[in-house]
Structure formats: structure tokens, C-alpha cells
Design a protein around this nucleic acid. Structure first.
Lengths: 230, 230
DNA sequence: TCAAAAGTGTTGTGTGTACACCCATGT
DNA sequence: ACATGGGTGTACACACAACACTTTTGA
């Protein structure tokens, strides 16, 4: 990195924000958290939650803080996606935004809109409203990454409770890929990955009680869960 | 994205730079371009080339500009990697850097150090000096991404001339993965991808003249060139 | 006994991997 | 004629895909 003398001269600087695309599964659908803007610009429009990076905090810390302010949730899976910096993406100022993707089990969180937000809601990813700024582009990118990550890693499991059944896992993948999988093949594939611990057997269901599993700790980060499509 | 009223109050902003990890193949080795810093901080140390983002230019435009200033090269493969923003990564100011990876055929370019740089050189990726800032981390990340991209996409071909032989392709992959491939299997795999046009046959070599190929245009972006390892 | 979801195996097809010899050219 | 890198095929192992019936429980 080159640091020309200009540093001292205080050239104008862009503002830096973080925006977070938070996904969850709700009503058998993949949903994303959007907030309704209470202020200009794009007042009244839906947008991805986010905010300015404060001077002493890292980008990831800023993303975590924003996420917690909106949802109260801690221990959320969080991953940096991409940085969007077209000069005209904010109509007022030059604003560069570092986009993050987050995944959570929807039961863990309670929506608590901040004061600069008039509403916060879950939207199905296939029934999205028009979004403020370039947030549609960001969301589209996040969706691509989500699918990719589901194929090649175990992040999908962060959308499930601690203990879960095999059909919950399958349902999760079917929702994300909008596609049915064969139960036997899916089972076999997941078992062959050796990423699950057997826990116990669920009770109090009016049908054959399923086995419960949990995700093993300290797994390698890339493991190819489902076969790439197309 | 939320834009609180703070915008108008001109809170302090971090500076934003782009840093570019430029790879090439030279002397049968994977090399990276480093510059020797002529100014503080880290004066005299090697670093990844980069510089400040100017107000009216996009991040990618800034990366292209810096790259061209250093190398004179246009039409270089360029891809955003990751944004590094730890508050203390620059000892003076808060500086957030958007890292890019670039690939070029080394014959296309001529190194032309800028005035704030006292030297610019190609380093083998396995013989790197200590680097300024967090640039070692950035480079490490770039290398991971490079390998990943080589496995799953055709970006590797941007390190080759317009027309090339099959052994040049194989050699490229062998260098990047530091691993030998079987000639017949490699050939078969590449041919099965249907990503190459047959061009003609090379002349003036003192051995059986090889066939020349070029990369087809408008290929899908993901195609799994080599099998994932580990 | 019924409803509901759980659980379980075999076979065919395609893809990856291992492996060795002859070919075309310039000198 | 020889040195140099170019070019080619077959056999085995493994992973994916297609496919249907029986089991366990609570009501």
C-alpha cells in the first residue's frame, strides 16, 4: 500500500458503512430481514440494515453491533461478502459500504427496530419489495453466496437449533435450493461426511420419533455438502 | 443501510485505500508484485502496491488506476478479494483497505515505479520478505483465493498469451498447485470442459510441433477445472 | 387401526485416477 | 539418427442418482 504525502493534507474521504443481509428460515421459506427507512434519503423504502463504522471499531465489530441493535441476537454467523463503492450509490455523499451476510435461527431473535427505522420485517427472498440504494444488488450477491456456502460448507446448520433431525436438515437444503432431494441419498451423503454427532431420540411426536443430531465442532471449513448444480 | 443524522455533523471518517495483489508466472514460478516503500510508515519495507481511492472514482477504477501507474498494463484480470479494516492496521490513521487480486501475463507489462516507491519487483510466493502493514495477511488470503479460482474457473488462462499449448496450461496448474498432474488425464479433463478453440499448429520448434488453443469467449463463470484437493 | 413421518439398500452410470508408448519435427 | 517435447487409450474404483417399502409412535 502506498501512502502519499496527501495523507496529511486531509483530502476529502468517503464515508464507510456496513450493511448486513440477515437470512433465516421461517414458515418453510428463506427470509431476509429488511428495515423501513424513517429518514431521507429513500425515506419510507425498505432497505438492508446497516450503519456507519465508528472510528475505533473493526468492520466486523460494526456489523455485529448493528445486528445486535436490530435483533438483540448474539452468536450469529457472520461473514463479509463484498464491498460496494460506486461513487453515486448514495445520492448525498460518497458512501462505501462493506456488505456482510448473517445467518440465524429465527427463534433466537426478537426484532427491535432502532429509532431511525420505522419498521423491521422478514421478507421471503422471492417476494422482495423495491429496495433503497443498490441494496437489491447486494441482496442478489448475498443469495448467490448463500447457495454457494450451503453447497460447500456447513454454515447451513447455523439456521437450525442446537439439536435437529435429519429431515430438518433436508428441508433446509430444499428451501435454499428450491428443489427436492431424495431422502435416502441425502441421508447417505450427510452421514458420509461425518459431520454429525448422534444425540438422542425426540419424544412426544405422534409418529415414529426421529433421531436427533448436532453438528460436530472444529470441522474443516470446506466439505462439499451437496453437488454443485448447473 | 441506515443513515442517521450524524451524516451532516461530519463525524471523523476512516481513509479508504485499494491494495492490489498482482500475480504472474515468471521462470516457472508463481510471482507477486511488491513495491519498496519510499515513505513512512514502514519506509524501506516491501508492500503490496495500492493507494487512496479518489472521490469520484469507483473502487475498481481506483484499483485499475493504481495498477496501471505501477505496471503500464491494461486489460488485466482484476477481482475484489476482501476488505481489511482493523482499527490499528495503519499506525497513523484509521485506514480501511479494499484488497484486489490481479492476474497478468508477465510479458504484457513493464514495471514503472511511481515516485513514492523506490523499487518494484516480482517475488516468488514462497520466498517472500516481511511485508508492511497487514499485507502478509492480505497476500495469504489472495493466494487461497487464487487456488480456489484456478480450481473452479478459467481465470488461470489470463496468465497465458492469447494462443497457448496444452502443456503451457498444465504447467500453469502445476505451478499454482505445486503438484504434478498426469498429462493424459489433464488433457482429457480440459478437453471435456469444451472451453478451448483449436487454433493452429506451432512452428519452428525442434520437436513435434504442438497444437495451439485459445480460450473460448463467454464461458460460464464456474466450471470446476481441477478436482478440489484435501 | 390409522395417520404421519422416519428409516433403510441395491443397481446403473459417470467421473477421476493410474499407467506407458509412439510421433513429428529440427538439427 | 537422435533429442525433445507432443500426443494418445484402457481398466479399475468411487461417488452420484434413481427407485419403494416397512417401522414406530400417539391419538
Amino acid at each position: 500500500m502506498v501512502e502519499p504525502k496527501e495523507t496529511k493534507k486531509e483530502y476529502p474521504k468517503p464515508a464507510v458503512t456496513v450493511d448486513i443481509v440477515l437470512f433465516t428460515i421461517l414458515d418453510k421459506k428463506l427470509k431476509v430481514l429488511l428495515i423501513k427507512r424513517a429518514l431521507e434519503p429513500f425515506k419510507g423504502m425498505w432497505a438492508i440494515p446497516g450503519g456507519f463504522v465508528k472510528m475505533p471499531e473493526s468492520l466486523e465489530a460494526a456489523a455485529k453491533r448493528e445486528l445486535q441493535e436490530e435483533t438483540g441476537a448474539k452468536d450469529i454467523y457472520l461473514e463479509q461478502l463484498y464491498t460496494f463503492g460506486e461513487p453515486d450509490r448514495d445520492p448525498r455523499d460518497r458512501v462505501i459500504t462493506v456488505a456482510y451476510m448473517a445467518l440465524t435461527n429465527s427463534e433466537k431473535i426478537v426484532l427491535t427496530p432502532k429509532t431511525d427505522v420505522s419498521d423491521a420485517k422478514w421478507f421471503s427472498v422471492d417476494e422482495l419489495p423495491k429496495l433503497a440504494f443498490d441494496h437489491s444488488k447486494i441482496l442478489e450477491y448475498a443469495l448467490k453466496r448463500l447457495k454457494w456456502k450451503f453447497e460447500y460448507t456447513t454454515v447451513a446448520f447455523s439456521l437450525l437449533p442446537e439439536k435437529f433431525t435429519m429431515s430438518q436438515v433436508q428441508s433446509l437444503y430444499e428451501i435454499a435450493f428450491n428443489k427436492k432431494f431424495d431422502k435416502r441419498n441425502f441421508n447417505k451423503k450427510i452421514r458420509s461426511l461425518k459431520i454429525l454427532n448422534k444425540e438422542s431420540t425426540q419424544k412426544n411426536v405422534s409418529y415414529r420419533p426421529p433421531k436427533l443430531y448436532s453438528l460436530r465442532k472444529n470441522l474443516p471449513s470446506i466439505i462439499e455438502v451437496v453437488k454443485p448444480s448447473d
